[in-house]
Design a protein around this nucleic acid. Sequence first.
DNA 1: GCCGATGGTCGATCACGTTGACGGAACGAC
DNA 2: GTCGTTCCGTCAACGTGATCGACCATCGGC
Lengths: 146, 146
Amino acid sequence: MGEPDLARLMLEASRSVGAEVVANLDERGFPDARPGHAAVFMHIDRRSGTRLTDLARRARMTKQGMMLLVDDLENRGYVRRVPDPEDARAKVVRLTARGRRYVAEARRAVAAVEARARRELGDRRYEALRGALEELIEARGLSAEV
Amino acid sequence: MGEPDLARLMLEASRSVGAEVVANLDERGFPDARPGHAAVFMHIDRRSGTRLTDLARRARMTKQGMMLLVDDLENRGYVRRVPDPEDARAKVVRLTARGRRYVAEARRAVAAVEARARRELGDRRYEALRGALEELIEARGLSAEV
DNA sequence: GCCGATGGTCGATCACGTTGACGGAACGAC
DNA sequence: GTCGTTCCGTCAACGTGATCGACCATCGGC
């Protein structure tokens, strides 16, 4: 019993790939990138902004968890919260100009790293990997869904 | 761009599977199991025990990180530290009787969950998943190796 | 108007690690 | 032998990604 269990294997792979994305972003001039930022920049509306609750739902996490991310990005000057004109309870998380540049580079960084992974594994195995991961998640129910 | 990035997909799948193992162990009478314990119980010598440093190396993590795990398991009564007769600097992490039962059940729980995943995906895709994950890790270098 | 649902926030806590620094024992060279 | 180096375990601080519970203001249907 030397081999790691499946959960650990996926965790290590996730960290490896995440670290590569962060390193890639570092080279692109965003040294304070964190893997978790992806949960925001993959889901935010680039022009109009998005409510925190919607971001949380899209990223399948709690609104409290998303708030920590948004707090962090706001401190770094990538987003700001503006009141939602349609709902006085709500605020819209909106990208700053710097934030739009960050999102653009981050998506390129993710695309570059995933393209590398795809080259390493081959198209068929890469798609199979993603499919298998999605099935594993699906079959166990999604944490912060609904 | 709605789909999650690869790193997040692997992270979520890891957590899903890890949570299932913990739930399985809960049913087996070990309600205080944590996913991280696997790093110990997959690598410890069941009879003679293993040094902390060796555990850390086998689990590919820092000795400080491993120490936190061992502290936790010691507090719960699953392992104890005994001086290494062959090296006065070292201590051997040795399973208690309860710890041996825990390890046995934990390995069964992991096996059960992985068998379920294998059924869901099919043998071929399951093996492909593990292979792809290992390649992704390998190609990026292993964190606490050497 | 009231009242339940919704949006955001605060506070505490947890899981799983990391880097840095350090003290004590061991070991090899001389 | 004793000197420097290496190795073992430990303490302290921090980073990352979350969770749950409580709370208040607002919204919207009745």
